[in-house]
């Protein structure tokens, strides 16, 4: 199967599974708290309904408000286009470099913040300020995480890192890297303990505050982009720990089926663990996040130092 076809398949499946992954976490959280919860597939209806609604535009807003949903969604689509989520050696694998990944994440975050502030409301600015601090402090940690991985794998493309077959089981130092990645993934996707994605309390909002002034199709686009981003992090983490079930360059028709099944399995496990985590821990106060983000930074730095030392001394 050609690289272009495999990449197209990955993009299609990622865009298809993203609302499911989001809905599954919500469903499992409800189950864990003793409620029946809504079906995981309601997310699809939510997005489609959003696309059909009317847009409410704040009178003081500018091109930044209307342009934001497009840029944020395009950034998310670029991530599923370039990263090795379901296939290795895809057509856009040269762009799976970790600095491109981090740069595109930063671009999306920046525009989300622009959109929130441009509405001129009382909540958007507060959320923007908080999100900006999280972004500013978590992106350097992501660089350290992938630098440690890259040192060991000998390549800076995430595609190449996964191809190298390194796992935390075979390389214990990667355990630190994976822990730091989990911490940052939770922060970047606005999950517990950093943020509550389902809160209706304005004063504690971070991610929700950014989309507070959006409605209709623009809100649907932003929510869809957030779902895709969550799927990206889930799949990257799953592939870092279990780099199997990925479609390879010489993959057959059967391997496509295996890949789809493995992807669904990975999504289910990641969603289950996220739901479990969110049901068992409390949200952290915002002004304690410095400890959380600093911990992630130093864990990643320790991972990096461990690679340097183990590779050169041992």
């Amino acid at each position: 199967m050609s690289p272009l076809l495999r990449t197209a398949l990955q993009v299609f499946l990622s865009l298809l599974f993203a609302p499911f992954a989001w809905g599954l976490i919500r469903f499992l959280k409800s189950q864990l708290s003793g409620r029946s919860g809504v079906s995981p597939f309601v997310s699809y209806a939510q997005i489609i309904a959003g696309f059909r609604k009317e847009n409410l535009i704040p009178p003081m807003s500018s091109w930044a408000f209307t342009g934001t949903p497009y840029v944020v969604l395009a950034a998310s689509v670029f991530l599923v286009f370039s990263l090795p989520l379901m296939t290795l050696g895809g057509w856009a694998s040269p762009f799976s470099q970790f600095l491109v990944f981090i740069g595109v994440l930063a671009l999306a975050d920046t525009f989300r913040i622009f959109g929130a502030i441009d509405a001129g409301g009382v909540i958007g600015g507060m959320g923007a300020s908080r999100q900006m601090v999280i972004t500013a402090l978590s992106l350097p940690t992501l660089v350290l995480i992938f630098s440690a991985y890259a040192l060991k794998a000998g390549t800076t493309t995430i595609d190449g890192m996964l191809m190298s077959g390194l796992t935390p089981f075979g390389q214990p130092f990667l355990l630190l890297v994976v822990i730091a990645f989990i911490l940052i993934a939770l922060a970047e996707n606005g999950r517990y303990p950093v943020d509550n994605p389902e809160t209706s309390l304005e004063l504690t909002m971070i991610g929700e505050a950014l989309t507070f002034s959006y409605s209709g199709p623009y809100l649907a686009m932003l929510e869809y982009a957030a779902m895709i981003r969550l799927l990206v992090f889930m799949m990257l983490l799953a592939n870092m720990i279990f780099p199997f079930g990925l479609l390879l360059p010489n993959g057959s028709f059967q391997s496509i089926l295996v890949m789809i099944l493995c992807t669904l399995l990975k999504i289910s496990i990641a969603a289950g663990l996220t739901a479990l985590l969110e049901s068992t821990i409390a949200k952290m106060r915002f002004y304690r996040l410095q400890e959380y983000l600093a911990s992630a930074f130093f864990i990643a730095l320790a991972g990096l130092a461990l690679v340097l030392v183990t590779e050169q001394i041992l």
């Binding site: 059909r52 609604k53 409410l56 497009y70 001129g120 409301g121 009382v122 507070f212």
Partner: peptide
Amino acid sequence: LVIAFGLLFASTSKRRMQAPWNG
């Protein structure tokens, strides 16, 4: 492509001016 998608499948042209919620 995303802009084209928005124009074709989402009702982005249906819009109304509305100040954000002000508490």
